[in-house]
Design a binder for these strands. Structure first.
Lengths: 148, 148
DNA sequence: CTACCTGCAAACGGTTTGCATTGCC
DNA sequence: GGCAATGCAAACCGTTTGCAGGTAG
C-alpha cells in the first residue's frame, strides 16, 4: 500500500551486503536510497531521490550518503548541465548520456572509446601521468522537442 | 606599470569590433573581460577573471557579461568538476581538457571525434533528433602530483 | 536622448557543517 | 557500549535579481 517503490530488481539482501562490504551500516534510509538508484535507468537528482525515499532519510542525509557512496565507488555523480547534480548507481559499465536541452529527456549510449582517447591525450600533453576517469555528455534535441 | 595585463595578442580594436558585431556596447569592463578570456590558454573562474579585471567590472557584472557572451557564442562555459564554473573564449576549435584531480593543473588536447560518436549515439538511442554540442573532460593525475 | 550597462545590496538555491540524539553491530 | 547514522537548524558560497544612477551610441 505504500507509495514507496519496493526493492524491485536486485533485492534487499544484496543491497545490505553491498553496504556491509563497504563498511557502512545497513539502515532503512540507505537501503531505500540504493534501491532508488539501482532501479532507475537514468541519473536522479537529490530532490527526486529524497521524494522517493520519503521520511526514511532527510535531504541532508541523502547528500551525506551520496557523498560517502561516491567515495566508496558505489554511486557516481553526473553533470547534466542542470543547476544541480544527478547521481547514478555505479555499475562499472562505461555508458554515457544524451540530454535534451529543451526538456528533461535523458537516454544512455555506449561506445565512447575513451581509453583510446585517454592514450592519445597523454601523448599529446606532457604534464600528465595517467587518466583515472572521464566525463562525457552529448547535448541535443529530442524528437518531441524538435517538432515544436 | 599597471598590474593589469595589456591587450596582448589580438588587440583592442578587434575586441571592440567583436562586441559591436554582436550588438553589445563596447565598455572598458567588457573589453578587459574579453581580453582576459582571449589571452588565457585555459578556462578561468569568475574569481580569477574578476581579479584580472580589477575595478573595471564587479563580480555581478562579470556574471552578467559571461552569460550574455555565452548566449552570443563569444565565450563558453566549461565544467572542470571544481565547485564553480570556468569560462573560455570560444574559438570554434573542438578541444578538450585534461584536469589533475589533485592540483589545479589543466591542459588541452584535441581529437575527440565526437561527431562520429554523436552519429553512433543517435542510431543507438531512438528518441533524439540531433546533437548540438557535447562536454568531455579527462580527469587524472599530473606528473608533479603522481610523484608525491 | 534612450536603451544598455553598471554598482550595490539583497535574495536565492543547492550543498555543507555543527551538534545533540538515536540505533546498528 | 561505542561509533556510525540521523534530524534539525543554521551557515556557506556561487550565482541571480532588483533597482537607481551612469554612459555609450
Amino acid at each position: 500500500m505504500s507509495a514507496i517503490p519496493k526493492y524491485a530488481g536486485g533485492d534487499r539482501k544484496d543491497l545490505q551486503k553491498l553496504l556491509r562490504d563497504n563498511n557502512f551500516r545497513s539502515t532503512e534510509g540507505r537501503l531505500a536510497l540504493l534501491s532508488a538508484l539501482k532501479c532507475s535507468r537514468k541519473p536522479l537528482s537529490v530532490e527526486t531521490l529524497a521524494r522517493q525515499i520519503g521520511s526514511r532519510l532527510d535531504d541532508v542525509n541523502v547528500y551525506r550518503a551520496l557523498q560517502a557512496f561516491a567515495a566508496a565507488g558505489i554511486s557516481r555523480r553526473v553533470d547534466l548541465q542542470h543547476s544541480h547534480a544527478h547521481y547514478e548507481f555505479n555499475d562499472e559499465h562505461d555508458h554515457h548520456r544524451i540530454v535534451c536541452t529543451s526538456c528533461e529527456k535523458v537516454e544512455d549510449f555506449t561506445g565512447c572509446e575513451c581509453d583510446t582517447l585517454a592514450h592519445k591525450a597523454l601523448k599529446q600533453t606532457h604534464g600528465f601521468a595517467k587518466v583515472t576517469n572521464h566525463s562525457l555528455e552529448l547535448f541535443g534535441v529530442c524528437n518531441a522537442c524538435v517538432s515544436r
